[in-house]
Structure formats: C-alpha cells, structure tokens
Amino acid sequence: MSENANNTPVLELLELSIQFGGLHAVDGLNLRIKKGCLYGLIGPNGAGKTTVFNMITGVYKPTAGSVLLNGKNITGKSPVEINKAGIARTFQNIRLFKAMSVLDNVKAGLHNETKYTAIEGVLRLPRYFREEKRVNEKARELLKVFGLEDNINSIAANLPYGKQRKLEIARALATDPKLLLLDEPAAGMNPNETAELMETIRFVREQFNMTILLIEHDMKLVSGICEELTVLNFGQELAQGETAAVLKDPKVITAYLGE
C-alpha cells in the first residue's frame, strides 16, 4: 500500500494542451514528477513554460488534457482550490504584497491556516488571540529559515531583490504545499545571489521534504540542482529525462543551448 503511494507521482500532466485562438501555446505535454524530486522545465523564450505553470495553478484552463496532483484530478479548478489542494508558486516578475510588512506577507500566506472567522476577529474573541499567536510564531519561524528575521517589520517593497525572492518562496511555503512551483527564481540575480539561491532551494527541499518544479534559464543553476528536466520548444516536448543526459542531447543543443 505504502509502496503504491510512493510510486504515485506528486504531479502528473497528461496530454496537457492549451490553444489561444489558432496558437497552440502548449501541445500535448506529458510529465511525471516523483515525490521529493527537483524537476526543471527549460526552453527558449516563448516556449510555453510559464503557460504550463499557469495551467497547473488554474490561472488558465487547459483546452485539453489533465493535471493530476497525487493522482487526484485538479484540472480546471480555480487558483484558490488548487492552492488548497497543495500547490504553491512564485512568479517570474515578483508578486509580493508590496505595501504590507514582511511578516504580514507570510501571514497572508498562512491565511487558510489561521482559523477564526471575521466576526471572531472583530470581536477579539479568545480564538483570535490564540490563532494570531500561533500564526505569528509560525511566520517568524519560516522567516528565520530564510534569514529574513531582521526584516520582519520592513515593508516588502523596500527589501533588496534577493530577499524579495526569498520572501516570495517563504510566502508560498506558508500555504503548506505538497508541490512548489518556482518561475525563474534566479531571474535578475548576479552569480553570487544565484549561488545563494541554489543553496536556499536545496535547503527548502531537505528541510520541508518538498517536491519542486522550476522554470529557469540559468544553466548553471539548472545543471547544479535539477535532477530531471523537460525541455519545451514551441509548446512541445523536445526532450525529457535526467539532467546530464538531456543537456547533452543534440536536439536540445541546437534548439536552445547553442554550441
């Protein structure tokens, strides 16, 4: 039984497709991510990588195919339902709650974990204080893990770039996901920040026993931490398999990496 559960992939995409007018942005994508795996989705600009993320998280409804999370079909559900089902994400262009404090950003991520109603909140019933205290501690712990404990009262927009990326990951993890999607986490980072980010991603995987799917253009990061890869080109799978093998694939080299 448990053997069986271990074999069920955390995420499975079956013939996932989406069409915008006449454009097949993603066409028949198949993908399986095992539990605990660090999986990379790469490809040239416009290949449809972010579109795949948007279909997985419910921002777009696929025109065909399905998305399975731990064997359960979640195709076409709303972003909120999909987050509740256990998928959290970060965005290519950082989307923090800019005017809120760093702590409140994570507490907003803990929204569904904070269990009191609006009326209990306004009347300041005991449950409000109990839950706020618990959530506060949880948020602080999470921020400490990411080295943001000195910034908890800063406004999110005022954080340096690298820390904003980290905060976004912390906020995503606050929703207690089974699968974490990172959309170009190293975009706009210098080599030092990228190296630090690699450490963070590795650390997140170990610490939270997380399954991670990431989109990235930085090949150093991809070859450094991804165990398996799928290469997309024009919305279709170009290659799939273990990182080292995929990166040596002549098709991938001509289409994306270059000589």
């Binding site: 972003p79 987050n83 959290a88 989307r95 809120m100 929204h111 300041r124």
Partner: peptide
Amino acid sequence: VLMLFIDSRSGRACMAVRDNYIAAQSVGIN
C-alpha cells in the same frame, strides 16, 4: 470595528488582494 477588522486575518486578506490580486489567489485567499 474598522480597526479590529483591518488588523485581523480578514483585513490582511483584503490588503493582499489590493496589493496583488493574482498572488492573493495563489496563496489560497478567496
């Protein structure tokens, strides 16, 4: 009432929606 509402889970959710609609959905805020 307004102060207590804003300084609670619900107020945070409203501000999250204000600051980023899509991100608010992505963390499960209705």
